[in-house]
Design a protein around this nucleic acid. Structure first.
Lengths: 226, 226
DNA sequence: AGCTGTGAATGACTTCACAGCA
DNA sequence: TGCTGTGAAGTCATTCACAGCT
């Protein structure tokens, strides 16, 4: 967490929801819908209507009172806000199970992120083909980042190697890191890190599972507001 | 200030950090450390000391003033709070790239989550071996969940199939779902869902990348000390 | 009439700061 | 003395509620 002085125009919590709205709008567009109300969008995104309006108002107002938001226009605006007008080249460090899966994951390319390289230190892995890419040695990182203008790196190595991988990415010029290793990375201020610890997600579920009101019984459903 | 005895004893935000503390404590234990101060633990976890103390105080106080927390004891307490005293059997629905990677991912088992089955609807995938498991047909879900006492399901199917997969999991008796599909799942109240949308994570990074103070010219990595 | 945009109210989470114990 | 535990203050996020546009 770099504590840099910044004017945070849009709250972090709102930023995290914009991609979800974007996703929902694409679905609406695919269905041929031309407008959508905050209430409908909220329903789709699993949040409430006031939040949708407030979130969207953070980058100017685009809705029409009495009607709602124009789907096409809102997609354009969100794309611009999210920096999705151009593709983002990414590199993956670590060609194990997870790195390999990420490299062949279609969900990235579909949404504007192209994996331009996957690297590993293990000579046994270098040279393998994964999802249209050949695994390169981690020493090629500098060259690759420079050649492709990579700004985003994905760390998919074992915990013990994660800091080293991050250091290399930063040295190569990468300024945003998506970290799958269960480690707190130490990076220079100005470098963004997002952690995705898959086991932590399960642990949070287990926490709630362990203390559900009905103990170990099956569900006694009570109404919860959505 | 516990005037209203709510069901929510521990704030969500704190719960999300407990697994991280747990992870750090295991590292400390491995190094042979017997005690740790809130400040040291905070440093490792990437948060601040007051937060650590407050978080830990939510389930009773275990620290010794003037000394800190006893590592072994705190691990035990966290394990209990997080429901990690027993293993959690999980099933994965979807044997594509992501599902396969998750099935062979060591990080789960190491932290108390055992993948007891991976299922798919595609006959071409059924029967394949993945990380010590044989892919089963999705129709076997009920049987598997009942036989193994599965409470946690992992959805790793394409978006169009996600709701169906979730419905099946819920029908089979699963009460917590980790959803990797970029879709808002509709589940009965009482069923917990956590979403992990990998592309959204990248989009959030892209958002910040797009509006970094130094504009689009990257590689002007200013060296700021951390 | 319907729906957005937004100040104001509420609520949640974080940080401060210090009393109190080992 | 050193460090925890915790009220109180502060910050940030969510929700309400309604004025105001179409």
């Amino acid at each position: 967490m770099a504590a840099a002085p910044r004017r945070r125009a849009i709250p972090d919590a709102a930023v995290a929801r914009l991609p979800v709205y974007h996703r929902c709008l694409l679905d609406l567009q695919a269905e041929g819908r031309t407008t959508v109300s905050s209430e409908q969008l909220a329903e789709m995104a699993g949040v409430n209507a006031a939040k949708v309006r407030k979130d969207l108002s953070h980058f100017g107002s685009y809705g029409t009172r009495g009607v709602g938001y124009e789907v096409d226009q809102l997609i354009i605006d969100l794309r611009r806000e999210l920096g999705l007008e151009h593709d983002w080249p990414c590199v993956i460090v670590g060609a194990g199970n997870l790195g390999s899966a990420l490299a062949s994951f279609n969900g990235f390319r579909e949404r504007g992120f192209t994996v331009v390289g996957i690297l590993d230190v293990d000579p046994a892995k270098v040279g393998r083909r994964i999802g249209g890419l050949v695994v390169r040695h981690q020493d090629d990182l500098d060259e690759l980042v420079a050649a492709e203008g990579v700004a985003i790196g994905i760390v998919a190595v074992p915990p013990a190697a994660a800091q080293e991988a991050a250091d290399r990415l930063v040295a190569a010029g990468v300024t945003s890191i998506l970290n799958f290793a269960p480690t707190v990375l130490d990076v220079p201020a100005g470098v963004h890190v997002r952690d995705v610890d898959l086991a932590v997600e399960l642990q949070i579920l287990a926490f709630h599972e362990e203390r559900r009101p009905d103990g170990r019984n099956r569900r006694v459903v009570e109404r919860v507001r959505s």
